[in-house]
Design a binder for these strands. Structure first.
Lengths: 159, 159
DNA sequence: TTTCAGAGTATTGTATACAATTAAATTGTC
DNA sequence: GACAATTTAATTGTATACAATACTCTGAAA
């Protein structure tokens, strides 16, 4: 019974994060409604505004998403006029994602819209910082466990 | 320029939460692979193990999910033999979700499996507690903002 | 009793996610 | 240069999420 509580705590933390993530999603969706951007589309644009063009793979590394998610997402962004997808001349495996003129023009508008909606979440910078540090710890731990499980699988195969 | 940093911090926190949520999801999916349960299916089972039967609505309140998500999820759980969906006799609008015998039998197995995989995330109980408290703050703040936006919409309509 | 507003669930349509596979291009190696 | 291994995107299939809508049932008011 002694080790039941921590397990429950972990589960509660997991659910809190899961729930907060959904709420953030909803918040951004509604804040960005005038632009028709979803949260994943928005963070893709953020990365591109910072440094475009990028290949699908490079974008995926930053966003931790694979082509299975990004290809359709980018097609939607293209359809809505935010980006253009151009097969690279030098390496035809790659597709370069460029910003359109509209995207460049609207960047400040989008930023300002987000700025208006930002509430700083009722937290100080220090609190946010410490929370992010803790989240990094959690993520690293989860990666470690996943990695251990991968190794365990390999060992399994040898039997 | 002075208020740019906090906005970026908020965004980074949002992304950290988004990313951690995905990692947790992956962790549970892989831990529960022997049972074929996903994370959302698992938390549905957790609630049901605690107190079944429940209506779709009651389950949705606990999980913060609506019937659009739950109906297909519960159909899959039913197909895999975890639950049965029974239209209520006393109020035919409601569908009661019951545990199957298999679900009752496998409960401890699932718990033990999760227990084995639990790593306590490299955090103390106090750290987890404080993190959850901060997440609650974040979620409340996001709810407040959403609520304000709803009110703003109402005001819009009157013009 | 009839009607009707609201409750509860299901359905439809859109947008992620991600595992697994496919297809095309490039690189490395002989 | 031929060819196997690798890389990069796209595709396919499954599972969430959620808004909007439809449909059925219930309870209350007229």
């Amino acid at each position: 019974m002694a080790d039941v509580n921590p397990v429950l705590l972990d589960e509660q933390l997991c659910f809190s994060i899961y729930s907060a993530s959904k709420k953030f999603n909803h918040f951004y969706q509604s804040a960005l409604a005038p632009f028709g951007l979803t949260y994943p589309q928005y963070i893709a644009m953020l990365v591109l505004w910072e440094k475009a063009p990028l290949t699908v793979h490079q974008l995926g590394e930053r966003l931790e998403l694979d082509s299975g998610t990004l290809t359709p997402l980018l097609k939607r962004l293209e359809k809505q006029g935010w980006v253009s997808r151009v097969r690279s001349q030098t390496d035809e495996r790659q597709v370069l994602i460029h910003l359109t003129e509209m995207a460049t023009t609207k960047r400040d508008e989008v930023y300002s819209r987000i700025g208006q909606c930002q509430t700083l979440l009722g937290m100080t910078s220090d609190e946010i910082d410490s929370m992010m540090t803790e989240l990094v710890t959690v993520k690293e731990q989860l990666d470690t466990v996943s990695h251990q499980r991968l190794i365990a699988k390999e060992v399994d195969k040898t039997n």
